[in-house]
Structures are given as structure tokens and as C-alpha cells.
Design a protein around this nucleic acid. Structure first.
Length: 487
DNA sequence: ATGTAC
């Protein structure tokens, strides 16, 4: 790869021209009604991936949003989404009639990743792994539709209090909260501002994994590339980890559906014109904008509570298998981060109140940031980057001087549709190949497994490498999958 | 992502 500062060509992806700023950063010129340019972080091989052309056109559409500042950004794992690309980052200036767009958060509001680390080792996994996986497969509700660990009676408190409410209800430990983004809950949540239909869908899904790309994985720390940061995070080479990727289930989906409809209806009143109906948006400082943020925070609290309840279930399972108590089992939270979220932030480069949309992008604040827990204040924010099924996941750390409002990629990123992935191999074949590679697979639906096969995703190591070179986040450790529980 | 359809 060529370094920063060298002359870069202009390349064309689909119908979009990109001017190279470095080997991993590209600019899409501001033309027509675009308010800002597009700025894309990717290597050339990543730009040449299937469907990236459509994501780039969406980057340009997002650049039309009222109040957008600096640029419409895309992370290296970008692929097309509803209105906004997945892997998209857009900040709007609240005081300059900046908007909030439900499509800029996505349907799975509050979706994110939680990483647990344990004191158990690979030797112990060799002996107990199958039993752990079989029990997890039995106790973790997953797949589409209803089914949750916790009674729907807890829904109102969890919508209000997120992971903190789940801990208060007995699902976890007080110190868990320290290692969850925003201390586990968003204060601005208004459960009353989400529809009865959204609540009905959520009531039956408190404590459930879901389907699609959501998973619960047992992993081993394969490689530590930054020992001091890994130690601060609580990650030790050879240790067994648990990664949980899930979101706000039908509840968040319903909140998004309702909010897009509200925004589409309200837009003419604010004389907002956007190039795509899916970019429906309202001013942050409008009744509709405030209502969306409150509903988004409630759905995010649901997602945080969801991951907390599943964490408790993991601890119960480990305690069971290793014959210890759930309170003593040495399984701790490394971090929990939301990668579908709009966040009100003040950034030093602008000193304005910004509404930062991250859709399939994770916050990646550098050392010194006020929101970091005390023991990570001098280290930086953990960035959890799950790979595709059967490939390694990565832990990175946020940097100072991040070029995209302190954002980093959230995964490997799809390269083909679910339908296309099913045509390549049968789910049973994907399961066989993973089993042969030594990974214990416990799917609810074998048929749907093919949709999530590694060949349907980009190469996660390329995404990590671009993150490093573009200063989005710095690699800390590689986690190799041992067993995967899927919807 | 999603009671893959209001």
C-alpha cells in the first residue's frame, strides 16, 4: 500500500468517482445539492467488492441532509442499507436546523456487541466446550419471533433503565455497569413515546438473541498485538471469551417503522427535501425529533438490557458446567458497545452540538475522553469488531485524531444478499465445513446458516488493516471462534 | 435487522 501524502489516482466505482487522499481514504466531490463531500475509508480491494457501488451512492445521498457537517462518511465494511449505508457516519449541527434520521440509525436500534472475558483456558474448553455449547444452545432463545428469558412484566423498567435495570432485577453484578457504554442506560428514554405495538413485540422478547447476523460465540484470545491495552481491557492470550451480538428485536424494528412514517409525514412542514424517501428526517430540535430520540433511547435501553440478561444466562451456564456459583464465576465484561445509534456529542474540532448518526459503525473515542470508565480513561474506548461466522473477531482501541467523528467499523460487512449466499452452498454444508475446521456450531435453523457463511462477507483482516492505517482504531487482539450459537 | 405481509 502507498503511504499518506503520495499522489493518488481518481478511480471509479460503479458511477461514483473517488479521489484518493491516501491508500485508505477517498473523497467524493460535493456536487449538485450535496451539502458536504463524501469521505470513504477503504482499500482498493474493499472498494471493488460487490454492492459497494450502491453504498457509495447512498453516501452521496446522505450528504444532502440538512445541517450535515464536514462530510458523509463510510467505514471500510460499508454495504447498502435502508437509505443510509451500513457503515455510514453522519453528524448534523443541532443549532443549524440539523436533522435526525431514523434511517441513519437503522431498524435494529441499539444493536451492538458485548465481549466477556473469562479465566477459563483453552485446555478447559477442550474438556468442557461441548457441554457448554450444548447447554447454551438449550437456554439461549434465538431465531425470529417471540421467546425471551425474562417476563414481559420487566419491559417498562428495562425500557427506562437498560442494563442497569437488568442488574437491579438480579441479572448481573453492580460493577458490570462500569464496562457498558453510557453506563448501561440512556436517561432520556421515554417508554410512553413508543407505540403499543412496539411494546407488545418487545414484551415477548426480553432476553433473546434474534436471527440474521446475530450470534453468541465462544472464542479464544489467539493473538495479542498490544499487550498493555489488552491487559487494561482484561484480555489475556489463551483466555476464553464470549461475544454476544444482538439488538432490540421486534421492538426496535417497530420503533423505526413508526418513526420513519412520522418523519415522512412531518418533513413537508419543515420544508425538508431529501433525494431518497428512505432518508426521511426531522430537525433534532422539533417535537418529532425529540420524540424519535426518546423512543430510540428506550429501544437502545432494551438492547442493553437484552445483552445483560444474556450475559447472566452465560454466567449461569458456565457456573453450572464448572460447578461454581453464578456470583463467583470468573466471567467479566470487557465492554458493550452500540453500533446502531444517534448520539448527541460535542467534538473538539467543531465545538458544536452534533447529532452523530452511526449505522453499523461504532464509537471509537481516544484516551482522555470523558465518557470512558475511570480504568480506561488513559487507554481509549474498546472497539469490538466481530468477524464473519467461522472467522476471527478483533478488539481494537479508539484513537485521538480519528477522522470520522470518533467512529470505527463494526464488522466484516456483507458482500452478497442472503438469497445469493443460499445459492452458493446449503446450510448443512456450511455447518459441516465449520465442524471440520474444529468449530462447534449450534444453529436453530441449519437452512439459514448459509446466509451467514464467511463467503458472504468481506475479509475482516482487511477491515482491521484499513482501520489501523486510517487511524479509525488500533488493533489490540484477535479472537478465534471455538463455538457459535446462532438463530 | 424483522411475527421476511396491513
Amino acid at each position: 500500500m502507498t503511504g499518506l501524502g503520495s499522489v493518488q489516482p481518481i478511480i471509479t466505482v460503479g458511477i461514483t468517482e473517488l479521489r484518493g487522499l491516501s491508500s485508505v481514504a477517498w473523497e467524493i466531490e460535493r456536487v449538485g445539492a450535496m451539502r458536504v463531500p463524501g469521505r470513504v475509508f477503504a482499500s482498493r480491494p474493499l472498494l471493488e467488492q460487490e454492492n459497494v457501488d450502491k453504498a457509495l451512492r447512498q453516501v452521496q445521498s446522505v450528504a444532502h441532509l440538512p445541517g450535515i457537517v464536514e462530510a458523509s462518511f463510510a467505514m471500510p465494511d460499508m454495504h447498502p442499507g435502508y437509505g443510509f449505508p451500513i457503515g455510514g457516519v453522519a453528524a448534523t449541527d443541532v443549532a443549524a436546523d440539523g436533522v435526525v434520521s431514523p434511517g441513519g440509525v437503522g431498524f435494529d436500534i441499539g444493536c451492538g456487541v458485548r465481549l466477556l472475558s473469562s479465566e477459563f483456558t483453552l485446555d478447559q474448553f477442550d474438556e468442557y466446550g461441548r457441554r457448554l455449547m450444548d447447554r447454551l444452545a438449550r437456554v439461549i432463545p434465538r431465531g425470529s419471533g417471540p421467546g425471551g428469558i425474562v417476563s414481559g412484566d420487566f419491559l417498562p423498567s428495562m425500557l427506562r433503565g437498560g442494563a442497569q435495570a437488568a442488574v437491579d432485577a438480579g441479572f448481573g453484578r453492580a460493577r458490570d455497569i462500569e464496562r457498558i457504554a453510557n453506563r448501561g442506560w440512556f436517561e432520556g428514554a421515554s417508554p410512553d413515546l413508543i407505540s403499543g405495538r412496539a411494546r407488545d413485540r418487545g414484551r415477548r422478547q426480553v432476553g433473546s438473541l434474534g436471527g440474521g447476523n446475530h450470534f453468541l460465540e465462544l472464542q479464544v484470545v489467539e493473538q495479542v498485538v498490544d499487550r498493555s491495552v489488552a491487559t487494561a481491557f482484561g484480555i489475556i492470550e489463551g483466555g476464553i471469551c464470549v461475544m454476544i451480538h444482538c439488538g432490540s428485536r421486534g421492538l426496535g424494528h417497530q420503533v423505526c417503522t413508526d418513526s420513519v412514517a412520522t418523519a415522512q409525514e412531518a418533513m413537508p412542514r419543515y420544508a425538508i427535501v431529501v433525494p431518497d424517501r428512505q432518508l426521511a428526517c426531522v430537525p433534532v430540535e422539533s417535537p418529532e425529533g425529540a420524540a424519535y430520540l426518546s423512543a430510540m433511547w428506550a429501544a437502545s435501553n432494551f438492547a442493553l438490557a437484552n445483552r445483560q440478561v444474556l450475559t447472566h444466562e452465560v454466567r449461569r451456564t458456565f457456573a453450572d458446567v464448572f460447578e461454581t456459583s453464578v456470583d463467583d464465576v470468573p466471567v467479566d465484561i470487557v465492554y458493550d458497545v452500540l453500533h446502531n445509534m444517534a448520539s448527541l456529542e460535542v467534538h473538539p474540532e467543531s465545538l458544536r452540538n452534533l447529532c452523530v448518526h452511526r449505522k453499523g459503525a461504532t464509537p471509537a473515542h481516544g484516551a482522555g475522553h470523558a465518557d470512558l470508565p475511570a480504568d480506561l480513561r488513559d487507554v481509549g474506548q474498546p472497539v469490538l469488531l466481530p468477524g464473519s461466522m467461522g472467522t476471527s473477531s478483533w478488539v481494537l482501541v479508539g484513537t485521538n485524531g480519528n477522522p470520522a467523528f470518533s467512529s470505527a467499523p463494526h464488522g466484516a460487512g456483507r458482500v452478497m444478499s442472503r438469497t445469493a449466499a443460499r445459492r452458493i452452498r446449503a446450510g448443512s454444508q456450511v455447518q459441516e465445513e465449520m465442524t471440520r475446521a474444529g468449530i462447534i456450531v449450534r444453529p436453530k435453523s441449519v437452512k439459514e446458516l448459509a446466509e451467514e457463511a464467511a463467503y458472504a462477507y468481506k475479509d475482516v483482516s482487511e477491515v482491521v488493516s484499513v482501520s489501523d492505517l486510517a487511524n479509525l482504531a488500533k488493533p489490540v487482539a484477535e479472537l478465534r471462534p471455538l463455538g457459535v450459537v446462532k438463530g
